[in-house]
């Protein structure tokens, strides 16, 4: 269809593209412009700053030490992805490819928790974290992230494992693999697309999280970029919008780059 697209189809598609780009880019460009404005010009609606200023960029790193928060966000994102894979992959594999009593019930007990509002769990979690010494630590944060990362990872992983050819493990075992080797040497490499996809989506959950990072960390702890930005806006009388916009821009870049890398795997994962 693509090669022989009619003129009408092309016009329609480009019109749609322009509308979408406007919807995303008009506000976004305004962030970029604002990031280079002087504090005095912030409150005038202009698209070309009279005076280009990089003061905001300097302030973000020199005074706000934003790289510290970015590093924490990176740890939070990567850690969330790794931990959620460690917890969900073995479970999802068994849920998809082994038969045992209570399988469906257990599976729905996990996936059903997708509808728990996280806010409901945050009070008991915070109290427990303080008691066991996980409060204000990156490990505690990563474990808490699993509350929303695991149920949805298990769901996506199980769907993919279930769609893989039926007798793969038996074949591997005919060739002398143990049960575990069949999983580790045959199934895991074949599941690379879904593993990369789940890692990417879990990374986003950790990177973008505000609720848990805000509740479970303090200023001198592993505070992430999203909390740092929020604090910068919610704090004083005068919000330094130009500084905020710089932080916003920087925080938005890593996920986009990761998406470019993960794109191919995502499309293999979400095909029926």
């Amino acid at each position: 269809m693509s090669d022989r697209a009619t003129g009408f189809q092309r016009v329609l598609a480009y019109a749609g593209l322009i509308a979408l780009l406007a919807m995303v880019l008009v506000p976004y460009s305004y962030i970029v412009v604002t990031a280079f404005k002087t504090p005095g010009e912030i409150f005038e609606v202009t698209w070309i700053p009279e005076e280009l200023s990089v003061d905001a960029w300097r302030e973000v790193f020199a005074i706000n030490e934003f790289h510290r928060y970015l590093w924490n966000s990176l740890l939070a994102g990567v850690g969330c992805a790794v931990l959620s894979l460690l917890i969900s992959v073995p479970g999802a594999y068994v849920f998809a490819r082994k038969n045992f009593r209570g399988r469906e019930v257990l599976f729905y007990l996990i996936v059903g928790t997708l509808i728990f509002p996280f806010i409901l769990l945050i009070v008991p979690i915070t109290i427990t974290w303080i008691q066991v010494g996980l409060y204000n630590s990156i490990v505690g944060l990563l474990i808490a992230f699993q509350i929303f990362a695991v149920p949805f990872s298990v769901w996506i992983l199980r769907g993919y494992f279930a769609r893989m050819p039926r007798h793969l493990e038996e074949c591997a075992m005919v060739y002398g693999c143990t049960q575990f080797q069949a999983f580790y040497k045959v199934m895991l490499p074949l599941a690379k697309p879904v593993i990369v996809s789940v890692a990417f989506l879990s990374f986003l959950l950790g990177w973008n999280d505000f609720l848990f990072s805000n509740m479970l960390t303090t200023g001198d702890g592993p505070r992430t970029a999203s909390v740092a930005i929020y604090v910068a806006t919610a704090g004083g009388e005068r919000i330094e919008w130009e500084v905020m916009m710089v932080m916003t821009l920087i925080t938005g870049i890593p996920p986009v780059i990761l998406y470019m890398i993960a794109q191919k795997h995502l499309s293999r994962t979400f095909s029926t």
Binding site: L21, L204, N208, T248, T251
Partner: peptide, 15 residues
């Protein structure tokens, strides 16, 4: 363009 579409989701919601 696909990357561009993603920018809103790539930023933390509070941002």
């Amino acid at each position: 363009w696909r990357g561009v579409m993603l920018v809103a989701y790539a930023m933390p919601p509070v941002v």
